[in-house]
């Protein structure tokens, strides 16, 4: 592994660490709000990866300079970064906040119905409900009431 390869890829690996931290929060934590936070971190780290695709060394933000009348000045010496990933991520950020707000609304309702937002408690309540249903409607193993 050459130094150039290492320097050219090290930030991708750092993004992966961030992504996986977020992913770990989602799959390992039982608190519903915390899962949403983890999901956000996961997604934001993916956004970083995208934005870094667009970066050109020595480049600048893709906004053309204008003169006093608002006319675009074309300057071939300026290197611009690739604007396409920026557009994609703008869309993705909006999608992210939409998902977050729906998730949070569901959490509020879950708390009202179950009086908890911990996965462990809720699984316990649901197991009890399923058990009661089986008592009433025949056991799950093929028995019928």
């Amino acid at each position: 592994m050459t130094l150039e390869f290492f320097l050219g890829h090290v930030n991708y690996w750092l993004f992966i660490i961030l992504m996986m931290t977020g992913f770990y929060i989602v799959v390992s934590r039982g608190n519903y709000v915390k899962k949403i936070v983890g999901l956000n971190i996961f997604q934001v780290a993916v956004f970083m990866l995208y934005i870094s695709i667009g970066k050109v060394t020595g480049g600048t933000a893709p906004i053309f300079p204008t003169d006093s009348q608002g006319k675009i000045k074309v300057d071939p010496d300026i290197v611009y970064s690739n604007p396409l990933p920026h557009v994609l991520i703008l869309t993705a950020i909006v999608v992210g906040i939409a998902t977050t707000s729906l998730g949070l609304a569901l959490i509020v309702r879950i708390r009202e119905e179950y009086n908890s937002i911990e996965e462990d408690d809720i699984l316990e309540i649901e197991a009890a409900m399923a058990h009661a249903e089986n008592e009433e409607h025949g056991s799950a193993m093929g028995g019928r009431a």
Partner: peptide, 8 residues
């Protein structure tokens, strides 16, 4: 159109 920002 001229600087960062827009409808969203």
């Amino acid at each position: 159109d001229f600087s960062p920002g827009g409808g969203f």
